[in-house]
Simulated assay, not measured.
Amino acid sequence: MTEQTAREKPGELSREDVAEYLREHPDFFLGQDELLRSLTLPHDSGRAISLVERQVHLFREQRDTLRRELVELVSIARHNDRLFEKSKRLLLQVIEAVNLNEMAAAIDDSIRGDFGLDAASVILFTDQALTLNPQGALQVVAPAQAKERLGDLLEGDRAVCGQFRESERTFLFPDREEPIASVALVPLRDQELRGVFAIGSCESGYFDQNMGSLFLTYISDTLSRLLPSMMQRYCEPPVVVDVVAESN
């Protein structure tokens, strides 16, 4: 028993009893106009206001809150629509590319032009020699070299965003006059890890761990499906040694 309950007289209603009764009978004040007019509540301005005025005030606050939330949702929807259109244009250009260099160039142009970011890089992993000379945003490295330089960044299937170490940023975006400060890195996988797709910003806080990666994943999923056939087209066939001829 609380001290307040102990002070209450037998049969006397507590504040909690009254509140509970009103919750169970929300229509209690119907037909009680005189009672409503006599009830007053303190206001921030210092003057007393009626219960009806207080309800109107609360309804207006709720309306304003809902209006702000609606405006925010509409703004997010418009932003996502713009991202979708940019992503669609990028993917159509990638699909129409005739070789790996054109594919990487289309990505670089879209990321820097449409998306307004500072750099893009497509790094493919293979031990086989290519018949095509990598140019621009395209790099081709051995899987062991990529593992040595990027380490745990290659372990997951989802985009990794953050500032990264300087050695990692330099590996992803070499030969830059203005250094990249933050990165979004997406693995390119189908049955195996084919490479990475990286986007860079010169702003240190542009990409962070809490950043959404839906559209990056959307782009990387498409690239991952296109890469195996494109890479096979430009990989030199392995040299076959004639063991019988050598033995003779």
Results as ranks from 00 to 15, higher is better:
162 G>F: 01
145 Q>K: 14
140 V>K: 02
6 A>I: 01
46 G>K: 02
109 D>R: 15
181 A>R: 13
108 D>N: 12
208 D>A: 04
170 T>F: 13
31 G>W: 02
14 S>F: 00
79 H>G: 10
160 V>E: 11
147 K>C: 10
25 H>D: 08
199 I>V: 15
157 D>K: 14
154 L>I: 05
66 L>W: 06
68 R>E: 07
184 A>D: 00
230 M>E: 11
205 G>D: 14
94 V>R: 03
173 F>S: 02
116 G>C: 02
131 T>I: 00
163 Q>C: 11
26 P>A: 00
52 V>G: 11
178 E>P: 03
124 L>H: 04
102 E>D: 11
242 D>V: 03
51 L>M: 09
64 D>Q: 12
247 S>I: 15
149 R>H: 06
164 F>A: 07
113 G>C: 07
9 K>C: 09
106 A>Y: 03
132 L>E: 06
115 F>C: 01
82 R>H: 13
166 E>Y: 11
3 E>R: 11
179 P>G: 05
120 A>F: 07
141 V>I: 09
181 A>G: 00
86 K>N: 12
165 R>D: 11
174 P>W: 01
155 E>L: 15
220 S>M: 06
158 R>P: 03
189 R>D: 05
52 V>E: 07
139 Q>V: 09
220 S>E: 01
49 I>G: 07
13 L>Q: 07
223 L>G: 03
126 T>W: 08
148 E>Y: 10
202 C>A: 13
18 V>T: 00
38 S>N: 11
23 R>A: 12
84 F>A: 05
171 F>Y: 05
23 R>I: 08
10 P>A: 13
111 I>E: 06
186 V>P: 06
189 R>K: 04
52 V>F: 02
73 L>S: 13
162 G>A: 09
147 K>V: 04
150 L>S: 00
71 V>T: 04
189 R>E: 02
155 E>S: 15
94 V>H: 04
150 L>K: 04
42 P>M: 09
230 M>R: 14
239 V>A: 09
64 D>M: 08
11 G>R: 05
54 R>H: 14
76 I>S: 09
67 R>F: 10
103 M>H: 01
77 A>M: 05
4 Q>P: 10
99 N>M: 05
96 E>D: 14
209 Q>G: 08
122 V>Y: 04
147 K>T: 12
142 A>S: 14
233 R>N: 06
115 F>T: 06
215 F>V: 00
77 A>E: 06
146 A>D: 00
183 V>P: 01
18 V>P: 05
128 Q>P: 00
122 V>Q: 09
191 Q>A: 10
106 A>N: 08
29 F>V: 04
123 I>Q: 08
244 V>C: 07
104 A>E: 01
184 A>M: 14
14 S>V: 06
39 L>Y: 02
209 Q>C: 07
92 L>Q: 10
212 G>S: 10
16 E>T: 12
202 C>R: 15
64 D>K: 09
12 E>Q: 14
29 F>W: 09
196 V>Q: 00
227 L>N: 03
181 A>Q: 12
243 V>T: 11
224 S>G: 13
247 S>E: 14
51 L>Q: 01
242 D>Q: 02
